[in-house]
Amino acid sequence: MNTGIIILLAVAVIVYAGFAERALDRLRLSDKAALLFLVAMLLGGFLPDVPLGANFGINIGGGLIPLILVGYLFSKAESWEIGRTVLAIFIATAVAYGAMKILPLEPTYNLFIDPLYLIAIVAGLIAYLAGRSRRGAFIAGVMAIILSDLLAFVENSLMGVTASTVIGGAGFFDAVVISGFIALGLAEIFGETAERLAPFFGAKTRSEEGMDEDDKGKGREEEGNEGE
């Protein structure tokens, strides 16, 4: 049983059982839409890749569907959130691409975790810390890997080396999907834990401060347009 399938099953169970209500609300996704995206990612991974040029293409489940989800989440984001998320994408991409260059070639050199997950964790961590939103974390987690792949493609082209690049080519097993979900998971765990611990340290919670980016837009919709 591979990592992608484990994540898929765990997320599907959590969503189906209604345990991810708050997280999905913050992503502004319904249970049904979330399950639809999960199924589309899984099945899309088994469809043929879409060619986008010589030695370049995109996998439907591992690349196209996550990109559509990213587009949807962007469309639901507030204008002030978009700028910050875009910045997070660039920083996460730079770190992810830099990590691929800096980290030693062989996974045996890793400190405690395989580079596949380390890069995803770093991208997710930056994305969440930068935007402090679930939406931003997922978007940046996915985009950091996609843009790193594009940079690798450009690098090969500049060096005159012929090598195939298929964005999200491993479907649900791909680093794109794994990174997106790890980033979202980190955001959820960090966000929730920070919220729960805040009162113990005498601090106001982010929602009390009006800083919860995920809820901010929703609050505006419900309570009328209150400026930042």
Binding site: N59, L105, P115
Partner: peptide, 18 residues
């Protein structure tokens, strides 16, 4: 070949496996 020859090589070969 999964070049460039860097720490992302196994991420790229993951796609080949799939």
């Amino acid at each position: 070949t999964h070049v460039p020859h860097d720490a992302g090589a196994y991420n790229r070969s993951r796609r080949t496996v799939e």
